[in-house]
Amino acid sequence: MKIAFSAAGADLDAQVDPRFGRCQYFVIVDTDTMEFEAAPNSGATAGGGAGIAAAQQIAGKGLEAVLTGNCGPNAFDVLKAAGIKVFTGVSGSIKEAIESYKAGKFQSTAQPNVSAHSGMGRGRRKG
C-alpha cells in the first residue's frame, strides 16, 4: 500500500511539510516494505494553481492516501477525483507519521481544511 507525504526533505527522517501545494518534496512510501521514493514537488515554484500541479504530479502513482498538514480546495478536488484519501493535520517526521497511520490514528478529511492560496509565501533572500 502506497502513501505520499508532503515533505520538507527527501527521506523518511524529513519533517512533514504543512503545505501541500508548495511543499519541497513528495515522499512516497510503500508501507508494507518501507521502500520509498522522493521527488521534488513541481508545484512548489508554480505561479498559480500550485495545489493542482502538485496533486496532478502524484495522482497517477497508485496511491491510497496523501498525508499532509493542510490541503486546499483545488488540490483536494484532484485527489478526490483520483480516489486518493486525504489526511490533514499531520506533522512530525515521516517515520513517526507512518507509525501513526498504520496504527489508525489519523482520520481522513472529507473536505479541504484551508482556503486557496494559504501555502504561498516563499520569497527569495536578497543577494
Binding site: 498559480g48 493542482i52 496533486a55 484532484v78 477525483a81 483520483a82
Partner: peptide
Amino acid sequence: AYHAIAVFGEYVL
C-alpha cells in the same frame, strides 16, 4: 501556466 487544467489517469479536471 495557471494550472487551470489537471489531467491524470482517466480524469480531466
